[in-house]
Design a protein around this nucleic acid. Structure first.
Lengths: 220, 220
DNA sequence: TTGGCCAATTTTGAATTCAAAATTCACACG
DNA sequence: CGTGTGAATTTTGAATTCAAAATTGGCCAA
């Protein structure tokens, strides 16, 4: 192995083991692979992730701060299970954050970014036509993430992501019937229009409504 | 000692040592007693706080997640020093969050809460008259916190606090001349008016402007 | 003196250890 | 049968340990 250095130093350790664990665990939670409400056993998780308890416990404390897990004194951690009220609050905040992002994005988005969103929009239409729901969800999320990014405010983007982490796992609870799906697509078309015209107020309004409707589609 | 239990169990440990350390450290940072940009020595802090390194390191990771400290790989932690851009972003977000809180508070605030805000407002006027700036700051913050609370959305309140932690330490950098102080007081009076009339749009507008002006008062 | 190099020391990252708390489980008793 | 009790086991919280990385400080040479 001619090129190898002392220790295979691929994964240039960004910032300590704990951060890697935070990201992996958060992904597991957000994707629903770690069930909401379920207990987290430190030993078991350590073995699964092949790490010692220290970085795992550090990660759990960070995720508790993000309110993705709950720390019970002397009784370990559990994946947070949102109450109906918390879900409603998250959507109320998300609707506002998206509206703000949309408004700011109208002022600050670049043409290449706008083009990319348009491209994604067509990809999304393709998924819609094929009734490919997972693909639709994925592209939809990427569009919203790009808008958040185009608002050119990293703190706003951070808050957006934070709230998004909370509600993303709820996508399994949304029942998209044919009519509602079509409606959602229509809203996206209007959003693109507003963005293209740099009509901030309209983009904000469309996004606020879009999120409010998304909330209504949740199964209770 | 007749009443004493095995171990003096006052401070009913809310939730582990690390959380206590998080709160204490955050307070030190926000109050500026831990200088922005300064290195944090684990051993020294451990001795000062009379704890071992484990809970301190857990706390540092949480605070890094809150972006109050920065973790440098293998080189320890330092208190975050905000760039001008980050400060501008924080105020941009804060202005929006306050506006949202004000708007929602108009819909949801109770009469006792409104009364308490009025009482605080008069206390604040007293501080203003006496030119008691620390007292003014303190009451001012409590008024804004109450409005955030009256919005009846814990997640929104959490985001509000998070952003507030970031910019609170900047209060040392604001130069309040006589005119500006008077102006600020006037804005508060208008805010109270809007709240009393439950005029959400107006409360939002006043708060947005209030924050924007606050930002302009910062020394660069 | 100044600059560079290497050993000694300090500091960090993460695993391990140890005590305290909670949980499990067997068994006696009603 | 179901229920309460307590010892054994597991799990958690936090200190300690240990290796790796960074920093410091001294020494030598230019």
């Amino acid at each position: 192995m001619e090129h190898s250095v002392t220790s295979e130093n691929l994964a240039l350790d960004r910032q300590g083991l704990h951060q890697i664990v935070v990201d992996r665990l958060r992904k597991l939670i957000v994707e629903g692979r770690l069930e909401a409400g379920s207990r987290i056993n430190e030993k078991a998780l350590c073995e699964q992730l092949q790490i010692s308890r220290t970085p795992l416990r550090e990660a759990l404390k960070v995720l508790a701060n993000e309110k993705l897990v709950e720390l019970l004194p002397n009784r370990g951690a559990k994946v947070v299970l949102l109450s109906d009220r918390e879900i409603a609050e998250a959507f109320e905040v998300m609707a506002r954050l998206e509206a703000i992002s949309g408004e700011l994005a109208c002022e600050r988005i670049t043409q290449p970014e706008l083009d990319e969103i348009h491209a994604l929009h067509y990809e999304m239409l393709a998924c819609y036509t094929r009734k490919d729901l997972p693909g639709y969800y994925d592209i939809n999320m990427r569009i919203h993430a790009l808008i958040s990014k185009a608002a050119r405010n990293e703190l706003l983007q951070d808050l957006y992501q934070r709230v998004n982490f909370r509600i993303q796992s709820l996508r399994f609870r949304s029942n998209f019937d044919e009519t509602e799906w079509a409606e959602s697509v229509q809203e996206h078309t209007e959003l693109l229009e507003a963005l293209t015209k740099r009509d901030g107020a309209r983009a904000a309004a469309v996004l606020h409504l879009h999120l409010t409707k998304k909330q209504r589609k949740l199964k209770l």
